[in-house]
Design a binder for these strands. Structure first.
Length: 760
DNA sequence: CAGTGAGCGAGCTTCCGCTTGACTT
């Protein structure tokens, strides 16, 4: 018998759980998120008529909507999408698509998937809050206007196919600005003084209370210490505590999984999705640290049983994030006593992390005894400080963090004299802000209230696939560090080298990102402003509270925004391309310019006039539009360069192509990576050329009179007529292949696949 | 597989946020 009620939620995994709680009178189905949206093609906003949007059922939701419609026909419908702006809009769109009366259809909400929460929701239905729906429409329309009016400007001024938007353009800007800070950063040098004392046979490491400015200050200080007396002036003992962190939200999960497990944000989300679908964790796209009372009770029971009363402390965490909508719980295990879950080792690691964080969040503080010993000098005002830390109660460290070793200091009393064993002054360099990783960028966006849990991972992908950002490992450079040491009353100077600036898996902007960001900031400063989202969120809140009409808000915004679009259309390509004159060519006297062209960053020698065409060259490997120098550019214009001749007397040319540096003899190209085409010698070139010839020769297995060739390719032997290739089956010996057989294989082979190459 | 860069014209690209699978060489 068919049930009388149809409950519609957003997620199918949720539907399954809720159906169990509600019993046979209720069928629970899911909408799979939004079902209607503005069509992808075209603006679909009637600017002249109160910005009226045109919606359509999304292509991938046609089937879902048709099925829901059928199911709704004979039942009472309960709209149970999430209780936030987007969820309310989904409920409203469902009434439109299913032809329900929004004023009469039952709307229910819950923040946790527990039996009491669902039962409570069912007895308290309301109707759709149209103000909240309007706030969502305002959000949607604003994002469409910004995205679809800004992007075409970039197609004209920078590069075709580019994109801009309220979220992605700010994400790119953050990375561009951080990179420039690093580029312009001048480290400040100072000297850190460390000492090793002995007392009653034990060691006491300590550090000077101040840093010394330079070697000229450090050396006399060390010298002065030879005649010093070191006395303990104070021993301070302070008890301290460490409290656990809140359970995970999407953003904090992404950060910790990146830091502790090395997962990318996308990887973390997909692993979490699987754990969620298996019912092992709660929903993974959330901005809330809230935990249901049932889960708190279960965690309490687990902690008390496992570790004892003193390890438990019930806590509710306040969600501090700007603009948090708190439609879901924090990410936690669905069963606190389940220590392991997950189908593979990665899922298991992520589950373990979620479990640890959630359980730890309900545990007692760790207690730490801190000791601070002050050591004064008889004749100087500077003093040394030794810090000790002993864990006296591990508390939540039992399950999460806290694998730091104790620093135990020897027992000393004020007035005791210490013997100096070692004294070092080590040069230190101040550091610039760190490059963003995927996870730290998400953290920053969350702080700014930009983007939502469901969009962090896709945003990071977008700015990479659009070619704004690259994820790279940076090598770093060696630098010399000066160390002064006191050795039997004499100050000795040594240097050791260290690597600086090495970075792994960090986000670095491309030239295109720098050019685009500068253009957007110049013409659309307000929208690229870090506070823009926070400001419009205020307006959305006013709409949600019924204090403002959404078309009024959008009209005000558009009145300021659209003229900027028109103004930006007047910018010259030259201006957008950031042309920068590096200097004059010493030979011709023509200006050499670095700029961003239609195909990317490039160098130009001479101006384009009616009589003259300029020369062009690519940027040297690894250099940037903003930092390339005149000398580097001059070298690039020396290409292609005649390196010399082969043993047979053929000319060897060196140049840089799309695939890096190469040499060319007749029509044969030979990659010379990592050699430099401006400096490669004739003998180096000959060696590479001959090696290539040998390899080419090995490639040929046989050739028939008709021109059919049997070659050795990277995937094994194959037949080619120059146009079409065909793999030779493993059962056939390529050497004894006859011409007729070869023809047959080639004719039967599938047609050449056409790869649609994405523009990079 | 080893260029190009002006401007014209065709027709294309593009946003953010909510959900999963269907895909991959």
């Amino acid at each position: 018998m068919a049930s009388k009620n149809l409950v519609i939620v957003e997620s199918p995994a949720k539907a399954k759980t809720i159906e169990q709680y509600l019993g046979k009178d209720y069928e629970v189905r899911s909408s799979f998120g939004h079902i209607r949206d503005l069509p992808k093609k075209g603006l679909n906003i009637d600017i002249e008529h109160d910005f009226a949007p045109t919606y359509e059922v999304s292509a991938d939701k046609k089937k879902v909507v048709a099925e829901l419609k059928k199911a709704a026909a004979t039942r009472e419908v309960w709209l149970a999408s999430d209780e936030d702006r987007e969820g309310e809009a989904i409920a409203w769109h469902l009434t439109q698509a299913l032809k329900l009366d929004p004023a009469k259809t039952k709307r229910i909400v819950f923040h946790e998937i527990t039996k009491p929460a669902i039962e409570q929701a069912i007895v308290n239905p309301r109707v759709i809050d149209i103000n909240l729906v309007d706030a969502q429409q305002a959000r949607r329309v604003l994002d469409r206007l910004v995205g679809y009016e800004l992007s075409p400007v970039l197609w004209k001024k920078v590069r075709t196919g580019l994109s801009a938007g309220r979220v992605q353009s700010v994400a790119v800007r953050l990375i561009v600005e951080r990179e420039r800070e690093i580029r312009d950063f001048k480290p400040v040098v100072s000297f850190r003084v460390t000492a090793r004392f002995t007392v009653n046979g034990s060691e006491l490491p300590a550090e000077l209370n101040i840093k010394l400015a330079d070697k000229e200050a450090a050396r006399p200080f060390l010298e002065a210490c030879t005649g010093e007396t070191f006395t303990v002036s104070n021993v301070a003992k302070k008890p301290g505590t460490r409290s656990p962190s809140a359970p995970f939200t999407t953003s904090s999960l992404q950060q910790e999984a990146s830091r502790k497990l090395g997962f990318s944000v996308r990887q973390t989300m997909s692993l979490a999705q699987r754990l969620y679908e298996d019912g092992k964790i709660t929903y993974m796209r959330t901005d809330s640290t809230n935990v249901s009372a049932i889960a708190l009770d279960a965690t309490e029971k687990y902690i008390k049983q496992q570790f004892g009363e003193q390890y438990h402390k019930r806590r509710q965490y306040q969600t501090k994030t700007a603009g948090a909508q708190e439609a879901h719980e924090a990410i936690r295990p669905t069963d606190a006593s389940r220590l392991e879950a997950g189908a593979d080792s990665q899922q298991q690691k992520l589950y373990r992390l979620i479990w640890q964080r959630a359980v730890a969040s309900q545990m007692a503080e760790a207690k730490i005894d801190r000791t601070e010993i002050t050591i004064k000098l008889a004749n100087r005002s500077e003093f040394f400080v030794a810090k000790g830390e002993v864990l006296v109660f591990d508390g939540f460290f039992k399950v999460y963090g806290g694998n730091k070793d104790d620093v135990i200091l020897p027992d000393v009393k004020a007035g005791q004299t210490l013997e100096l064993r070692e004294l070092l002054a080590t040069e230190t360099f101040s550091r610039s802000g760190a490059r963003y990783s995927e996870a730290s960028l998400v953290k920053k966006l969350e702080e700014l209230g930009i983007g939502r849990p469901s969009t962090y991972a896709p945003t990071i992908s977008t700015i990479q696939t659009r070619g704004y950002i690259e994820k790279t490992d940076l090598e770093g450079e060696e630098r010399q560090v000066c160390v002064l040491s006191l050795d039997s009353k004499v100050v000795k100077e040594t240097t050791r080298s260290e690597i600086t600036g090495a970075d792994k898996n960090k986000l670095v902007p491309t030239d295109m990102a720098e050019v685009t960001t500068d253009f957007l900031v110049k013409y659309f400063g307000d929208i690229l402003d870090y506070d823009f989202t926070a400001n419009v969120e205020g307006d959305f809140d006013a709409i949600a509270e019924g204090k403002k009409q959404w078309p009024v808000m959008i009209k005000e915004f558009y009145k300021g925004f659209h003229p900027l679009v028109e103004k930006s259309e007047l910018a010259s390509r030259e201006e957008a391309s950031q042309a920068r004159e590096l200097g004059k060519d010493p030979v011709s006297g023509k200006p050499i310019i670095a700029r961003y062209g239609r195909y990317g960053a490039m160098l130009q020698r001479g101006e384009a006039t009616d009589e003259e065409k300029p020369d062009f060259a690519p940027l040297p490997e690894g250099s940037k539009l903003e930092t390339v120098t005149l000398d580097q550019a001059i070298e690039m214009f020396k290409l292609p360069r005649t390196v010399g001749k082969t043993a047979e007397g053929k000319e060897i040319l060196a140049d840089i192509g799309r695939f890096g540096p190469y040499i060319k003899v007749d029509k044969l190209f030979v990659s010379i990576k990592p050699l430099d085409p401006t400096t490669i010698t004739e003998s180096e070139a000959r060696e590479l050329y001959e090696a290539k010839l040998k390899k080419e020769a090995e490639k040929h297995i046989k050739e028939f009179d008709s021109g059919l060739k049997v070659l050795n390719g990277p995937y094994g032997p194959y037949i080619t007529d120059g146009k079409k290739n065909a793999r030779i089956p493993k059962t056939t010996d390529p050497v004894s292949l006859t011409e007729a057989e070869a023809k047959k294989i080639l004719a039967e082979a599938p047609a050449k696949k056409r790869f649609t190459r994405r523009k990079k």
